[in-house]
Amino acid sequence: MIPDRIMRKIERCLALSQSANAHEAGIALRQAQRLMAANGLSEQDVAIASVTEHSVSAQAGKTPPRYLEALATLINAAFGTQAVYSVSLDEHSHLIRWLGQWRFLGTDGASQVAAYAYEVLQRQLIRDRKAFQQGLNKRIKRATRIRRGDAYAEAWVMGARASIIPMEMSEEAVAVLEAYTARRFGGDLKALTPRQRGKLRHHDFTAVREGFAAGRHVQLHSGVEQERREELTHG
């Protein structure tokens, strides 16, 4: 394990190597190369070291519903991150109960912001879905209530997506995240197949329209900042 101070020094030297001052850039690059050679590091090793992980509860079990997978995808698009879904057994439960979480991977602090944004929007999405279901006719079947709630939530995410500007990621940034993922998880990662609630029926499309309209009012970045301000106020 390379000490953090060495990694930070190499990163600073590589940053200075981009200086407009050719003499300064040359010195910084040679210093970075010497440090990397002394510690057996490649440029990819240094780049991978800049990737961080931040986890957040998915409020789901072994298999997340499709609307939460869609929300994680939206967050990735907004902040230039990748999300990995992982599960663990609830040690505090007497029954076999799985706890799911999203691990957001990113550089330059993106993973922390992405995890926080996901947590904020997930809370709002679950609250809106529950409120929608409470407004349904009390006599409808439980399966119908769940199906319409899921339809509402998926449309909510679609509406929210319309208000974000996807982050443009360079080929280098994508390659770094892919290399980090391969090194971190090896061949253990599998394609995620989220849980779905069956085909929609005619009356379910009211849920789709209402969910999309509600999602259109979501302001991703301002919503996150509002949460931060509220936490500071209550703290």
Rank of each mutant, 00 (worst) to 15 (best):
R129L: 10
T107E: 03
A72H: 04
R201C: 07
Q226C: 01
W102L: 09
F79C: 05
V174W: 03
Y67K: 12
F205W: 14
V157S: 02
E168N: 11
L192Y: 07
A25C: 06
F104K: 12
H234A: 06
S42A: 11
E24V: 14
T193E: 00
D45L: 12
V157T: 08
R197E: 03
A179K: 07
I10D: 02
A20L: 09
M7S: 08
A77K: 02
L220Q: 07
L71G: 08
D108F: 02
E24S: 09
D188S: 12
E227C: 15
Q226E: 14
R5F: 10
E24W: 11
H54L: 03
A25F: 03
Y118G: 06
D45V: 02
E91K: 01
G235P: 05
R30N: 06
E230W: 09
T144W: 00
G80H: 09
R139G: 13
R197W: 15
Q31L: 14
T81D: 00
A162T: 10
Q112N: 07
L121S: 02
T181I: 00
Q101T: 00
E178W: 00
H234K: 08
A28N: 08
G159W: 15
P166W: 09
L232G: 11
F212E: 11
M36Q: 14
D90E: 08
R201V: 07
D204S: 03
E43S: 08
N21Y: 02
F185W: 04
Q133E: 04
